[in-house]
């Protein structure tokens, strides 16, 4: 890491590329000049970056939440009814082969430039993935557990709530984690193309005003948030669940 930063600074200092293409990270090239760190800190202090991060995250949460609901319902229907599996199941699998940013032109036509189309992209990206992972999870519930529960008199919603759903939790978490990563990509791609504020739009602004320092600051934020949520939220939940379910024994 330190070596990488050093090399970066050296390239910047020796003027291999112009400063707008290759800004210094920490030490300014001339007194009071731009650095990535300074832009990052200023951006956070004056709220521009924080505001953009906030609005990206809000869209992400809204989209992700709706996607989870849709994904679980569709996943359950695919598991429960063979006819749905044969029709919708195949359809969902084929739709997932389309990178979700490809939907953006269509989304812009339907919802206009703005929040609507960004959320649409997020929902689409995550919901398809959750549909597939949750239907697979439901299908892999050990039949033995269902037989045990039904011999003790559990049926219908009770059976679903206490056994079928519980038994899929480890796989559902893994599925959500995957879908979260897709949603995070989708929100940024959507904002990049669809405008409407947020980190993606700010990135596009950075490109148009040739502010490489701004672009880098945003990329750092994206990376940090992405790995923070993955490592500190999903990985922890996953480890806890796997340990409790007896899948992971360490």
């Amino acid at each position: 890491m330190l070596i990488l930063i050093t090399i970066w600074e050296a390239i910047s200092k020796f003027d291999v590329f112009p400063a707008f293409m290759w800004p210094p990270l920490i030490i300014p090239n001339d007194p009071g000049g731009v650095t990535v760190l300074k832009t990052l800190v200023n951006g956070i202090i004056d709220g521009q970056l924080l505001e953009a991060t906030g609005s990206s995250l809000i869209r992400l949460f809204i989209g992700f939440f709706i996607a989870v609901v849709i994904g679980f319902v569709l996943g359950f229907l695919i598991y429960k009814y063979k006819i749905v599996d044969d029709t919708l199941g195949f359809f969902v699998t084929s739709l997932q082969a389309i990178p979700n940013i490809v939907w953006m032109p269509l989304a812009i036509l339907w919802f206009g430039l703005g929040v609507g189309s960004v959320i649409f992209i997020v929902i689409l990206g995550a919901a398809l993935s959750i549909t597939i992972t949750s239907s697979t999870a439901f299908k892999s519930v050990p039949p033995l557990l269902i037989r045990v529960a039904s011999t003790m008199g559990s049926t219908g919603i009770h059976l679903f709530r206490t056994v079928i759903f519980k038994s899929t939790i480890p796989q559902q978490i893994a599925g959500l984690r995957l879908a979260w990563a897709l949603a995070w990509r989708a929100v940024l791609a959507g904002e990049l193309l669809g405008g409407s504020g947020g980190l993606g739009t700010l990135l596009d602004l950075g490109r148009s005003i040739q502010a490489m320092d701004l672009i880098f600051s945003i990329m750092i934020i994206i990376g940090v948030i992405g790995s923070f949520i993955d490592n500190f939220i999903f990985v922890r939940i996953e480890r806890f669940v796997l340990r409790k379910w007896g899948i992971l024994t360490t």
Binding site: S150, T151, K166, W245, G246
Partner: peptide
């Protein structure tokens, strides 16, 4: 009429709920 809790089955694999 179907399974009932007057007749409970113990299977070869214990079938305990792991969670």
């Amino acid at each position: 009429k179907g399974p009932g809790n007057d007749r409970i089955v113990v299977f070869q694999e214990s079938g305990l709920f792991p969670w």
